[in-house]
Design a protein around this nucleic acid. Sequence first.
DNA 1: CAGTGGTCTAGACCACTCG
DNA 2: GAGTGGTCTAGACCACTGA
Lengths: 230, 230
Amino acid sequence: MSRPGYARIRDAVLARIRAREWPPGALIPAEAALAAEYGVARATVNRALRELARSGLLDRRRRAGTRVALNPVRKATLSIPVTRLEVESRGMAYRHRLLERTRRPAPAPLLAAMQLKRGQELLHLKTLHLADARPYLFEDRWVNIAAVPGILQAPLERISANEWLVQNVPMSAGEISFQATGAGQEAAEALDTAPGTALFTIDRTTWAGTAAVTRVRLLYAPGYRMETRI
Amino acid sequence: MSRPGYARIRDAVLARIRAREWPPGALIPAEAALAAEYGVARATVNRALRELARSGLLDRRRRAGTRVALNPVRKATLSIPVTRLEVESRGMAYRHRLLERTRRPAPAPLLAAMQLKRGQELLHLKTLHLADARPYLFEDRWVNIAAVPGILQAPLERISANEWLVQNVPMSAGEISFQATGAGQEAAEALDTAPGTALFTIDRTTWAGTAAVTRVRLLYAPGYRMETRI
DNA sequence: CAGTGGTCTAGACCACTCG
DNA sequence: GAGTGGTCTAGACCACTGA
């Protein structure tokens, strides 16, 4: 029932901002003043304000103090789980089918995108993920063999490349983008839909140092929604 | 140049996980042990591990200790700025056009979705956002007048409802979902594209207490990408 | 019940930057 | 120069939970 003290301070400050006691752009009291007011240590106030600043509601600068953000940027945190767990958490049975597994030199368009040397070998994988035996996600992936040689021994019929990489190259940095695309011929067939159907699409490139580990395009079956709370 | 101590500890732990000194599922040393090893206070280690846990790489439980996550969940943080600033930050000129502004009782489908009483009045707004005079985003929004009566006086031709609400109802809680939809007749016309074109779509409901403040559907022009780093 | 993480405190020094 | 937030410390108590 009882919440931590920093949460109490955080919510109290949030309430005062919502009540416009401190309107957008206003300077709020210094940490020391708030600590005295609420009868807590300055570190507790610091943690509360740090969380509000991270969520975009406050702008903090040394010496300049803490201001209510003029244009609060909403930050949504998306959890991107392994596809198998995502499917299973929706109460459906997961399977996947490895449609293609080819070892080949990097094609020209990927050289720049993945910062590869000419002729560097990649593993090209096409995987269909199924939920309750129905198409859920079509995955087109390139893996840099030099960066993760272990991928060649991975039993990709049993564990998807998605899952294998997450477990073997954890928390690497990368870029991710979301968009809507019309289904091409191949994706339409794999996902059992008509060409041109709107598909939710994720492109992701994952890096280890200066060369990319993997680049993948995920095409979700029609009706897929990615949800979160803000 | 010099990074904070907690960042040093955090990166050191991350490196040891990547090096598989602590493989997925392994128990890592207790905070006190790491504090002694690195010669810092326990609070510093706590902050480092807390950040890694929040990013999904560690599972922490009292008494049970800290384990390397078996299935690290990638968390992507999306910044969702006000549309005007998003457009301007891409170096384009922003304008918006209010296409419709109607005050009417809540239609049936919204009663449940927004937790409204029968007959409650909403403001229905349709807005086209333009970047360099080209369609950028078509917005279909419902605003709960009872929750934000000020919206009736807002100069929505000058400041978009999007921006007005962010500045006047900051940091409210809400749900947000992303999907791909095919353009309907109205959206296709507004966005100057063909019906059926794949559109990146955001649905958002924002709450203040038990009743919704606003519910909006955003349809982005073809080619829109939402990007972030993970 | 004992060991872990969760939180808090009082105090300190430092980095930054506004006036 | 001075006031702010950023960080760190040493110590403490507590809540939770596995053995």
